[in-house]
Design a protein around this nucleic acid. Sequence first.
DNA 1: CCCTAATAGTTGAACGCTCAACTTTGGAGG
DNA 2: CCTCCAAAGTTGAGCGTTCAACTATTAGGG
Lengths: 173, 173
Amino acid sequence: MDGARWLDDDEQRTWRAFLWTSRLLNEALDRQLQQDAGMPHAYYMILAMLSESPGRTLAMSELARTVCSSPSRLSHAVKRLEERGWVRRAKHPEDRRTTLAELTDEGFAVLAAAAPGHVEAVRRHLFDPLTRAESAHLRDLLFTLLAGLADDPSAPAPPQPERSRRRRSPEEP
Amino acid sequence: MDGARWLDDDEQRTWRAFLWTSRLLNEALDRQLQQDAGMPHAYYMILAMLSESPGRTLAMSELARTVCSSPSRLSHAVKRLEERGWVRRAKHPEDRRTTLAELTDEGFAVLAAAAPGHVEAVRRHLFDPLTRAESAHLRDLLFTLLAGLADDPSAPAPPQPERSRRRRSPEEP
DNA sequence: CCCTAATAGTTGAACGCTCAACTTTGGAGG
DNA sequence: CCTCCAAAGTTGAGCGTTCAACTATTAGGG
C-alpha cells in the first residue's frame, strides 16, 4: 500500500467531482430519453450516428467505433432496435462477414421526434452553466484525457499473439 | 425541432468528448477492480465510504448520499456485500426505520488489498495526463456543472405534494 | 389522541451490459 | 490448394441498475 502515491485532498475532490458529474449527467440524459422517447441514451446514439451516415447505413464494426461500444453491446442493442422496427440488418454483398445496419424511416421519425428534447437537455446540463471559453477549455482537457485512454494497455485487446508482431525488447533473449 | 438551438460543431465535439471520456474512464476502472478485486467500482466506493466513517458505520440514506446512489441501488448492493461478509446490517436502536451499514473486518481487509491498484489506475488515467494546474481547472469546471446538476427539477424527486408546502405563485388563483 | 403524511428502506421484474464462448467468412503462407 | 489465423458478429448466462410497488416507523396537525 506504500508503493503508490495516495490521492491528496485536491485530487480526491477532483476525482469525486468527475465521478459525480459523469454519473448525474448520464442519469439525467437517460431519464429524459427514457421518459420522452422510450429508449436509453445508448440507443439514441446508435440511431443518431446511423442518421448521419451515407445511406443511413453503417457496418456493425464501424458503428461500434463511432458510438464507442463493444461489439457485443452493439449487437444486443441493434437486435432490440430491429425488433422495434427502427433499424434493419443486412449482410454486406461483397464481404459476407460484415453486417450492415440501416436506419429505417420509422427509426428516423422516432429519432427526429426525440432529438429536440435531448438537445435541450444536453444544453441545459452541460452548456448553459458554462461560458463559451469554459466549455472550450473543458473540451481541451477532455481531449487530453481521451488521448491517454485511447491507448490503454489494459483495454480488452485482441489476445496477445504468442510470438509474432511484438517488437522484441532488449531484455528478452 | 426549431424552437431549440442545435449544437454547433464545437459543442458537438465537447459533448462527445465528455461522453467518451466518462465512459472509457468508468470502464477502465470497472475492469481493473473487477479483475483485481472481484467487485465493480460502485461496490468499492461503498466500502471506501464506510471505511472513512466513524465506527465504519453509516445509515443507508447517508451512505446513499455520499456515494451518489439511489436507495434501491444501494439496497441491492449492500445485500450482495452482506452475502460476501464484507458489510453487516443492523437496525438503528432509536429510529427503527433506519438501517445501519457497518464495514466488517473482512470487508476492510478486502478494501485495503484493492486500494493500491485502484488508486494507481485513477492516477494513471486521470492525473498523470494532466498538469497540476490543468487538474485544478478541471475540478473547477466540474464543480460548476455539479451545481447545475444538483438542483435538477427533472431528478426523481419525491412526488409533488398535491396542495401543501408549495409556495403559491402569483399566477395561481 | 388519532389520522395523515413524510421518512427510511426493501423487493421483484424488466432491462441493458459484460464476459466468455462460438460461428462464419476472408486472407496468407507453405 | 490447404491449412491456419485473423476479422466480424452473435449468443447466452450472470450481474447490476431502474422503476414501480410495498412495508414499517416516526412526526405533525386537528
